[in-house]
Simulated assay, not measured.
Amino acid sequence: MKNKDISYHIAQINIAQAKADKDSEIMSGFISRLDEIHTLADNAPGFIWRLETEDGDDGSVSVFNDPLLLINMSVWRDIDSLRAFVYKSIHIELLQDRDAWFDKMGEIHQTLWWVPAGHIPTIQEGKDKLDQIREFGPTAEAFTFGKKFPSPT
């Protein structure tokens, strides 16, 4: 039986294959906007947490054997808050220009999942959720904006 007093938040992981090292000219347009986008996220309604190093740089978090495979993870109050940030803020400009900086990935590279309020997902948890959606498609355990599932409560 589920505890009805627990509320849930939405977690997300997104990985991207950079075309070049982050110090390269190719990546400069993306890297130059990171502080702006991080500040926007940090101050966005519904934002709770994002993966970052101690100095606030999520671009330096290396979790895969490929240094050009970048990771972004965050937790938001709800799907609507996350969707508003991703698609209805200046963040959309980065999505529109992503082909300049990132190669197309041959497999699913992002997923959403529900976490109990107060839970900060680990990198391994995010990798596991990517594996789940790749193997089983969208389910209540790992899903997408296009095929979302309601909170467990």
Score class of each variant (00 low, 15 high):
residue 2 K to S: 09
residue 2 K to T: 14
residue 2 K to C: 01
residue 3 N to Y: 11
residue 9 H to I: 00
residue 12 Q to R: 14
residue 14 N to S: 12
residue 15 I to S: 05
residue 17 Q to I: 07
residue 20 A to R: 06
residue 20 A to T: 06
residue 22 K to F: 13
residue 25 E to P: 04
residue 32 S to Y: 09
residue 32 S to L: 06
residue 33 R to S: 11
residue 33 R to Q: 14
residue 35 D to T: 13
residue 37 I to G: 08
residue 38 H to G: 15
residue 38 H to N: 15
residue 39 T to S: 14
residue 43 N to S: 09
residue 46 G to C: 03
residue 46 G to H: 07
residue 48 I to V: 15
residue 49 W to V: 03
residue 51 L to D: 00
residue 51 L to P: 03
residue 52 E to H: 13
residue 53 T to E: 12
residue 53 T to S: 15
residue 54 E to C: 04
residue 55 D to E: 15
residue 56 G to N: 02
residue 58 D to P: 15
residue 58 D to T: 12
residue 58 D to I: 00
residue 60 S to I: 09
residue 60 S to F: 05
residue 60 S to Q: 14
residue 62 S to Y: 14
residue 66 D to C: 07
residue 66 D to W: 05
residue 69 L to I: 08
residue 70 L to K: 13
residue 70 L to W: 07
residue 71 I to L: 14
residue 71 I to Q: 06
residue 73 M to S: 03
residue 74 S to V: 04
residue 74 S to L: 07
residue 75 V to S: 03
residue 76 W to M: 00
residue 78 D to Q: 10
residue 78 D to L: 06
residue 80 D to I: 02
residue 82 L to W: 08
residue 83 R to A: 15
residue 83 R to T: 10
residue 83 R to M: 09
residue 84 A to V: 02
residue 84 A to D: 14
residue 85 F to H: 01
residue 86 V to A: 12
residue 90 I to N: 15
residue 91 H to G: 07
residue 91 H to Y: 08
residue 93 E to H: 14
residue 95 L to P: 00
residue 98 R to Y: 05
residue 99 D to C: 02
residue 101 W to E: 08
residue 102 F to V: 02
residue 103 D to P: 00
residue 103 D to Y: 15
residue 104 K to S: 11
residue 107 E to Y: 12
residue 109 H to M: 05
residue 109 H to C: 05
residue 111 T to Y: 08
residue 111 T to W: 06
residue 112 L to Q: 03
residue 113 W to A: 01
residue 113 W to C: 00
residue 114 W to I: 02
residue 114 W to H: 11
residue 114 W to K: 00
residue 114 W to M: 06
residue 122 T to L: 01
residue 125 E to M: 05
residue 128 D to Q: 09
residue 128 D to A: 13
residue 129 K to Y: 08
residue 129 K to R: 11
residue 133 I to C: 02
residue 133 I to S: 01
residue 135 E to M: 06
residue 136 F to M: 10
residue 137 G to K: 12
residue 139 T to S: 14
residue 141 E to N: 14
residue 145 F to Y: 15
residue 145 F to K: 02
residue 145 F to D: 00
residue 146 G to H: 10
residue 146 G to L: 10
residue 147 K to R: 12
residue 147 K to V: 12
residue 149 F to W: 09
residue 150 P to E: 10
residue 151 S to H: 11
residue 152 P to Q: 03
residue 152 P to C: 04
residue 152 P to H: 07
residue 153 T to D: 15
residue 153 T to E: 13
